[in-house]
Each structure stands twice: as structure tokens, then as C-alpha cells.
Design a protein around this nucleic acid. Sequence first.
DNA 1: ATTTATCGAACGAACGTTCAATCGATAACC
DNA 2: GGTTATCGATTGAACGTTCGTTCGATAAAT
Lengths: 223, 223
Amino acid sequence: MPVRKRFFAAPGQAPEIVRTFIRKLAQAAKRGRPPARADRRESILAAALQCFVERGFHGTAMPQIAERAEVAAGTIYHYFPSKEALVNELYRTWKGVVAQRVFEAFPQGAPPREQFRVMWLEIIAFARDEPAAFMFIETHNHASYLDAQSVALDRNLKNFARHMIGLAQAAGLVKPLEPTVLMELAFGAFVGMMRAHSEGRIALVPEVIAQAEQACWDMIATH
Amino acid sequence: MPVRKRFFAAPGQAPEIVRTFIRKLAQAAKRGRPPARADRRESILAAALQCFVERGFHGTAMPQIAERAEVAAGTIYHYFPSKEALVNELYRTWKGVVAQRVFEAFPQGAPPREQFRVMWLEIIAFARDEPAAFMFIETHNHASYLDAQSVALDRNLKNFARHMIGLAQAAGLVKPLEPTVLMELAFGAFVGMMRAHSEGRIALVPEVIAQAEQACWDMIATH
DNA sequence: ATTTATCGAACGAACGTTCAATCGATAACC
DNA sequence: GGTTATCGATTGAACGTTCGTTCGATAAAT
């Protein structure tokens, strides 16, 4: 059973990268949103998310988004200055949500094996709650229409994961490979499985999830 | 050192899926290409590949492809009936190349561990020889503009991989998870690593490749 | 009465595609 | 051998369409 400690057992060795991470997240949230005036805004965002997932950014026309959101095309421009701004807000919002969830669930004092499991299960939970949003942020990574702020948010998340891998390596639990390689391998495996799931090729029952999680740990762990 | 047997040690148990696979590949190659008349055709394909990788299918305009290929826009339509036909020919060609390479290198009589290693190294070799083509066929999987033939080619490849996993499971070497799940995990990890490589985030020196390959085997293997 | 929200027609630009004109090499003819 | 006919290859302007976006009119809210 997962034991989730939210504070460090030994405060002196608290990784500042975690505090930096949460601070940047808060900053981004402050900087972002103008005060939401109507739920039209939300329905436009939801419609755009679906369209972008189904047909991609360039494959989606603004009138299509408008039709799906049941508003006129011009209305979108009352809430968003451009198509680019719309996709960037979507990206930042959902990447922030998943980051927030992972960070809040993260058991800071727990052993690495437990940390890995919790992160894995939390992202799975997110992907099941918001399948479209998950596919969106995974397929639109590093696209040319993402602005600097969106890219920075992704980099922060990866720095966080890399740092955790480094700590586990120091404890001799994880293979002495470059942390970036291990992270990309593990996350790539995860995304591959989730993509197959969202395309209906596999069924994600709890038993499969647990076994896949163990398999991914086997990949990065020393044996 | 890899020992590559090209023929079955026991012909009676030769997997017909392999023969079916190579037969379909030959059929597709025959059906396809009209007699190549000029190397303009090749330069158009190369230009389109680069553009599609950099900006995606919908993000690439035909005049951009023409400019990169140093031909007039109209010339493209002398060789390809439409933009869709162009992207599908690209997909089928390169997916066929990687399939052919993997199959020819596949050591049919060797133990599963060796088979896995050879397949892995062969795809790595392809990805290093043709990085744009590799990224293209991986990012354009299951896109709406791919026709039935392109989709079928991908399915054949996956059936082949799944079949091999099934045999390895029967030998007790691979975890008793659903073969599709294992395949998606392993291939997802591979793609994640290759993507990080093509974005310059990791350097694929031989030592890293060997360790990553071992890590992926650890993921699907029993322990 | 003023501000805010919404609409949908309209805009210029750019899209994928077409096509009449031209080029260049080879074949046919004298 | 020089001239002409032929034909596929190539061009780039032009086509109709659709794109992202704008805007004036109107409705709703304050």
C-alpha cells in the first residue's frame, strides 16, 4: 500500500528543484488567465481540444471549432486573439493540470520504487479522466506553434523527473545510464501504451496497468 | 556476437506469418511504382519528406515542397495525382524499407533474446541512416490521410512483432502479459529514445544504444 | 445609456489543383 | 545532314475554394 509522505524526512537534503518547480507553476498560473467571463470560453476550449486531437493543429479550421462549440466563428476571437493563442492556452492549461496532479501526489520521503509507482499511476489516472487532453499534450510536444512559455513548462516537468531519477541512481536502485535516456525510455513506453489504449487496441484493466508499471520499473531498475 | 541464421533449423515449425509478411511486401512493391522516368520524382519525394517531418502534413503547402525540390508547383502533379497520394507513397515506401531491413536481418533460428537484439539494432541503424524517414513514419502513424494499403502495411509489421513475442512467451522468456501491450511498451520506449535523439537531447553512442537495448529487454523479459 | 457578448457576412491571403503554353530531346523525313 | 514533326516533361499564371481573421450590426446585460 502506498505511503504518501508530503514532507521530507531530513529537511536538509530537500531537493530545491521541487520547490523551484512548484513556484514556477504558481507563477505561470498567475500570469495566465484573464478573468473567465462566460462558459462559452470553456466550451470553445473543449471543442478546440477535440478537434486538435482528431485532426491536428493545421488540420483544424477555426469554423470547425466554432461549429463544435456551438458559437459563431467570430465569437472565438472575443476570447482568444488567435488560433495560436488558443492552442497554447490549451497546452499550458493541461500540462499544468497533469504537473499539478503528479506533484501533489508525489510521496517525497518514500523510496524511489514507491515514487515511481505513484507518478505512473497518477498519470494513468489523468489519462483516463481526460483522455483527449492527455493525447493532446503528448502529440503536440515541441510543435512549432508552441510559444516559449509552453515549452518552458514542459522542460520544467522533465527536469523534475530527471532529478528524481538521479537520486534513485545515487541510491543504486536505477541503472547508471544517462537520466535523460532512462526518462525518455520510460515515458516513451508509457505513451506508447496509452496511445494503443486510446486507439482501442488494448484494454487498460487494473491488472494490465499494474503489470505494465512493473515492466517499466524493470526497464530502468538495476537487477 | 550476433549469430544470424537465415533459415529455419526445423523447417516444419517455420512461422508462416513470416512468409505471408514478405509475400505481401513483394505484392505491394509490384503494385506500386510506375517506371521512374526522371530523378525529379525522387527529389520531390525527398523534399516532401523533409517538409512533412518539419511541419506536418497539413502544415506543409505544395508550393513549399516544390520550392524545396526546385521544381515548379505543377510538376509535382505530373508525378503524383494529389498531396494525399504523395504522403501515402512516402509512407508506404519507407515503412516498406524498414520492414524489409528488419525482416532480412531477422535471425530466424536464434533464441528470442538474440532476435530481439537484432531487430532493435536494425531499426536503430535505419533511424541513423534515414532520420527524417524514421521520424516521418513514426509521427504519421494512423493519420486520417493514410489510405487502406498504408494502414495494412503497418498492421502486418505489428502482427509479425506480436507473433514473435508470443513465441518467446511460450518459451517462458517473456512476461505473460498481452503481446500487444508488451509490443507497445517496447516500441514506445524505442520511439521515445529516438525522438529525444533527433531533437538533440541525447547522444546515441554505441554504449548507450547497447544499454538501452538491454533495458528494453529487461522490460519485457521474465526475471 | 453604456458596456459587453454574439453573430455571420465579408476580407485578403494562401491553399491544392488545373491547364495552356513552352521546352528539349529524339524520330522521321527529304 | 539538315529540317521538321512528335511527344513527354516542365512551367507558372490562374482557378475556385477555404483559410484565419475582421468588423459593423445587433442583442443582452449592467
